[in-house]
Design a protein around this nucleic acid. Structure first.
Lengths: 271, 271
DNA sequence: GGCATCAACACAGA
DNA sequence: CTCTGTGTTGATGC
């Protein structure tokens, strides 16, 4: 379940590793995760060259010359691995992209992911990525002002729902949301309209710092990067620490159901 | 708040009283309840002749030759009154239809109603009436079979919600629903999927008998018919009898909130 | 309390 | 615990 830090880290590694390489062919093992038939998918990508690799939220964008974009969403428990020339590809892959120089990368997910190809001129009509909300890593876009505007628009919903909706802010999933809400002192079911101005600022700061901190550490320790190496982010404040003491007050962390997702909260610090 | 019995009674009286009369002109006092501009409304109805007047659910249909249909929904607290030649029209009317022979009828509602005119060939595209569900007065249409089919389709909703949705069954409002549910022994919030076969039959019978009985009595005592006469239906079983004894077990009737509507129930007989 | 519209939520499916 | 589509509920306005 990679979220923004893992995905952004992968995209940066892919950008460094793959930029300039030419695609020889694509190897599609499971066509159902594509947006077009496998033949068309192959035609769109074959003999293109990697211009750059970026990310937005949980999506990776590989811009290819001339005029194609490769889009990747790792769904739950997905990974991308780089392979040097002559290294075997993992057998559990859904697909792989092979380069003319012999390098390759494969992608795999346990559950539901997307491997899409679109003409770059039609990127704006790719609904799954076109509707993505603010990018917390983009200082120019994710300002306190823009963030507060989202909160006003969605004031009727619970704050956790708002933050996890990719159309509002792109990249927060059920892992990082836990400590973000804790750091801001907010209960996940707090009505967004009832979040005070100082809480909004604390929340904004928590989103920025939590995600950036995890990105600096290369993401979660139980996720792998492009080279199969685990991240170094290990210490949650309350996330997935049911029954352990709150780092602030010592009360025991509770696991509760919030709508259809689970939340880990400190019952005294988060209201 | 006229529901099916009052509306059906009005339509029958209008059919007897107005059939064959020719419209001289329409008098629109409040244009906002029309579906077209007043001028067009007048043009569509002027010089037409009443063919027949019918009803479906809470809507009255006046079929006019050649090719127009006058549609009336009394909303909440509405009424239709007939006026003989030279009688004054009530000052609180939203509109009136004047006949060439000097007769007229006026309509009035306290809150939101609809006075629409459509070409009869376009009646099927009048969305508010085209989507109406089963007519409980139509034996050929409102069969036990058709009723149970609705309950299966809407099994996820509370039974009261299903019965009051005009798209399922046309004509039941928050007045008659009370005794219908009581007669079937059903709590308004019972999930439709959990209504047993014998309860479904009891409910079907309750709908038919309650509405027909009220219609035979000319509707509710606090509603007026085409001639300003009140109906003779006075005795609710539990409806609007908060704090009074249940006619079956003597327990006190409770008024509860069910979603956004109020319900009157016997706490022991309705489960 | 009538009806339409929209937003929010729940659930199933891929 | 990802993302979409469907259906149901709730708030609002006429």
């Amino acid at each position: 379940m990679p979220e923004l830090p893992e995905v952004a880290n992968l995209a940066r590694q892919m950008d460094r590793e793959l930029r300039g390489r030419r695609v020889a062919e694509v190897d599609v093992v499971q066509p159902r995760c594509l947006n077009v038939p496998p033949e068309e998918f192959g035609r769109m990508l074959a003999h293109t060259q990697v211009n750059r690799v970026t990310s937005r939220g949980k999506w990776i964008f590989m811009d290819l010359e001339p005029g194609a974009t490769f889009l990747l969403n790792l769904g739950m428990g997905g990974e991308v691995l780089f392979h040097h020339k002559d290294e075997p590809l993992p057998g559990n892959r859904q697909s792989a992209v092979l380069f003319e120089d012999g390098g390759a990368f494969s992608q795999h997910f346990c559950w539901f992911g997307y491997v899409h190809a679109v003409k770059t001129v039609e990127l704006a009509s790719h609904t799954m990525t076109a509707a993505l909300g603010l990018d917390p890593l983009d200082d120019g876009e994710f300002t306190l002002n823009a963030f507060e505007k989202v909160l006003v628009e969605k004031k009727r919903s619970a704050i956790k729902t708002v933050l996890m909706d990719q159309k509002n802010i792109a990249g927060i999933g059920n892992v990082y949301i836990q400590d973000i809400l804790f750091a801001a002192g907010l209960h996940p079911l707090r009505k967004t309209a009832d979040v005070t101005a100082s809480e909004r600022r604390a929340l904004y700061a928590a989103i920025c710092s939590q995600l950036r901190h995890a990105l600096e550490l290369g993401g979660l320790a139980y996720e792998k990067d492009l080279y199969g190496q685990p991240g170094r982010f290990t210490e949650f404040l309350v996330g997935y620490r049911e029954g352990k003491p709150c780092p602030t007050c010592g009360a025991l962390v509770q696991k509760i159901r919030t709508g259809s997702t689970a939340s880990f909260i400190c019952p005294t610090c988060q209201t």
